[in-house]
Design a binder for these strands. Structure first.
Lengths: 218, 218
DNA sequence: AATAATTTTTAGTCACGTCTAAATTTATAT
DNA sequence: ATATAAATTTAGACGTGACTAAAAATTATT
């Protein structure tokens, strides 16, 4: 049985290896978990002994099949709980992360699957992140960052990359939510910002924001 | 912020002080938590320093107002989650204890209150145990043990005292559930057992079982 | 290729929550 | 009231997961 700390490490490694390439560095994990590289080294030994990661000293780590399966399962739990919190308990999408961070460690396969059924087997969480099914498979999407939407094309917001509350609140202010229709009117080269339309209303967003919004073409 | 271990100790002290008198002994706590008396002593010092219990060496402990408030809140969370698990996720009443034992440690006042509202502010959990409200007040009941129901009187099952799965499964077998109508036909003095009617069907239960079923008179 | 800078690991320490074994206090019995 | 039994606490240890400081390995620079 894994401790919460171990689970958090697995999740961090999964997240980092999805974002970047294969092998994840000790420092990257330390940054992700707000801990120190030395603590990470210690934990890497333990996870390696449990065959959850491949670990070669000084060479970074990556998940084994077993480790990846467990990490994906934790992500599944996290996202299912977020759906529950937003759809049934009326939390806002920027309020659920910390609570789901706790709920994801509850141990009961039956609970997860019954929750999944209760929620009607959702494919995406309130932030648009894909929810793996019981077999650990992610639903596939063909989303691109808003920042890469060609001028004059229209798209629909399907997900956000960051889930920091401050970012989500800012999106609320901009009236950007999952499902919103968006269009690029013009790219402002000098500051890399975008003149856009959100649900047909003119607006303006920075490159940083645009990169963190995923859309599908319409 | 309390650790899970600290919360479990508070809960154990509350449970024991409700059952027996005021002051709770070190050994009783150790038994309740399947730990050792020495571990309990250590923890009593810590809880005492945090003003959650009154602790005099060798004299047992009892909860302070502050400690009692926290303990009651944990019980509230435990029982609300049990309602959720049984009423919405289709768990059986004998399956929810261990999961609720984990869920009760999730920290978010807002979550508890939103869950409470979602469940329609239930007063009793699936085992008939009273659920304290946000202010920490328990609903009052005038339940008596089945074992004290006078012969020929009829009653309605409102709660069970134990929530061990094996006991609950046995009650299922006897067709005894919350709300069942019961009547004592005869007391068998030689083995302290009871001839009873459960929903008008004749049955037979032992004193041990009868003591653990709470009923209200009809 | 040698040195400097960075990254990573090791060594030693600490708080938490547990344990066993020994000491101490309280309760019981003669 | 004194000896014995039972309950409780203390002392010392351990595993977990964190930290700091120092050492070692890797990567970057000239």
């Amino acid at each position: 049985m894994l401790s919460q700390a171990e689970e958090n490490y697995l999740k961090a490694i999964l997240k980092l290896s999805q974002k970047n390439g294969k092998s994840v560095s000790t420092n990257a994990i330390a940054d992700e978990l707000y801990t120190k590289a030395s603590s990470v080294s210690d934990m890497m030994k333990k996870l390696s002994e449990k065959s959850l990661i491949h670990y070669v000293k000084y060479q970074g780590v990556y998940l084994t099949e077993k480790g990846k399966g467990l990490a994906v399962h934790i992500v599944r739990k996290h996202r299912l709980w977020e759906v529950f919190l937003v759809n049934h308990l009326n939390f806002k999408w920027d309020e659920v992360h910390d609570i789901a961070e706790q709920l994801e460690h509850i141990k009961s396969l039956e609970l997860v699957n019954k929750l999944d059924a209760f929620l009607n087997f959702p494919s995406f969480d309130p932030h648009g992140d894909p929810i793996p099914n019981e077999a650990g498979e992610f639903p596939k999407t063909s989303a691109i960052p808003f920042s890469e939407l060609p001028v004059k094309s229209r798209g629909k917001v399907v997900a956000v990359v960051m889930d920091e509350p401050s970012f989500l609140k800012y999106l609320d202010k901009l009236n950007i939510s999952i499902g919103a229709q968006v269009e690029v009117i013009e790219v402002n080269e000098f500051d890399d910002s975008f003149d856009v339309k959100i649900n047909d209303i003119q607006s303006h967003i920075s490159l940083d924001v645009a990169k963190n919004i995923l859309i599908s073409l319409l």
